[in-house]
């Protein structure tokens, strides 16, 4: 029996894979094309279809995850729109830089090395910051989105950036006030890296929103997803023009990820903020290792390393999404245990 031109087993595989990615996407606001495109390439889909369908899937999942984060009060639309402006300009400059490097014959190696070090560097930094933190107080109060953030929770770099009083000053959710030019500067820098590396940029933007601008992590995730709706929508439309979007891939993936994104988004309100950062960091470190292995395979023409790379990406995604679900269940039980004595 076939569905959408695929065997039932294949549809089941895509739905399951979508569920896994949905949990990560809803929880971190990243991970879509990072996981889907390499998997589709290894499955034998042409590059154009793998990238285009991956982008269309990211677009659909980001719509669902953004709607869910909006329900939880975790999307700052003003910040999101400003980020879109700065990011778009940065992407254009990043793409031009790639064209220039290509003319010098240096693009491939420089981009690969930058990607590995950036993923690994952000991963190590986020993990270190989370591990040395005080552990937080467990869970995130969504009603507190409009209240001023605790000064101890704002990273030092963000405090420095917020201290530059260059008008106009913009009030953001979480009680953050920062110069418009600082927001545009951060957005431009993340867009530059995104355009240079040819990636969606969630793994750069989400930590940048928290560490550089100082918005609370859940709002950083929700606002990042809001921006991905636009970048993913435009990117998938451009690929769809050339027939690069295959609905038989996107439909089952989205059916799974829609459910996973609900679990992931809901988990951000249950799991401790420091734990979110640890998982995010570990996921990036796993991704960095996977990209390094793939590049070594490409340079030395060892095809098996491509599969090892995919196994590393999928393995770290499975481990991290499993840890998110496990932490949520543990937090719920802990909450239940601490609440019971006061009831009796």
């Amino acid at each position: 029996m076939e569905l959408l031109g695929l065997s039932l087993a294949m549809v089941g595989l895509f739905v399951g894979f979508g569920l896994l990615i949905g949990v990560l996407f809803g929880f971190f606001g990243m991970g879509g094309s990072f996981l889907v495109t390499p998997a589709l390439l290894v499955m034998g889909y042409p590059t154009r279809v793998a990238v285009g369908s991956g982008l269309a899937f990211v677009f659909g999942t980001s719509v669902i995850a953004t709607l869910k984060h909006r329900d939880l009060g975790q999307v700052d639309y003003k910040l999101g729109l400003l980020m879109i402006v700065g990011t778009t300009a940065g992407i254009e400059v990043g793409k031009e830089t790639v064209v220039h490097l290509e003319s010098l014959g240096l693009a491939g190696s420089i981009i690969s090395v930058t990607y590995v070090f950036l993923l690994g560097g952000i991963g190590a930094f986020v993990t270190y910051e989370a591990v040395k933190g005080d552990g937080g107080d467990g869970g995130i109060d969504h009603d507190a989105a409009e209240e001023p953030a605790d000064a101890d929770d704002i990273p030092e770099i963000a405090k420095k950036i917020q201290s530059y009083n260059v008008p106009p000053m913009i009030d953001l959710r979480g009680g953050v006030t920062v110069s418009l030019w600082m927001i545009l500067g951060v957005a431009f820098a993340t867009g530059l890296l995104s355009g240079f590396l040819g990636v969606g940029g969630g793994f750069i933007r989400m930590p940048a929103l928290f560490y550089l601008i100082g918005v609370p992590v859940p709002i950083a995730v929700g606002t990042d997803l809001f921006e991905i709706v636009f970048s993913g929508g435009l990117g998938s439309f451009l690929y769809a023009l050339d027939g690069g979007v295959d609905l038989s891939i996107v439909v089952p993936l989205l059916a799974g990820s829609a459910f996973g994104a609900r679990i992931g988004s809901a988990a951000t309100s249950i799991v401790d903020e420091e734990e979110i950062k640890v998982y995010f960091g570990l996921m990036l470190l796993g991704g960095s290792l996977a990209v390094a292995v793939r590049e070594i395979g490409n340079v030395y023409e060892i095809p098996i390393l491509n599969r090892v790379s995919l196994a590393l990406i999928l393995g770290s995604a499975l481990l991290v999404s499993g840890a998110v679900v496990y932490s949520s269940i543990t937090a719920l039980r802990e909450e239940s245990r601490t609440a019971s004595p006061t009831v009796e």
């Binding site: 269309a56 899937f57 677009f59 659909g60 999942t61 719509v63 669902i64 709607l67 869910k68 929508g233 998938s236 439309f237 451009l238 769809a240 023009l241 979007v245 609905l247 996107v250 439909v251 989205l254 059916a255 829609a258 459910f259």
Partner: peptide, 17 residues
Amino acid sequence: DGATLIGAVLLEAIILY
């Protein structure tokens, strides 16, 4: 055609939501 395809993905996302 491209807009219809992306519209279909958007519609599926909203229905699933």
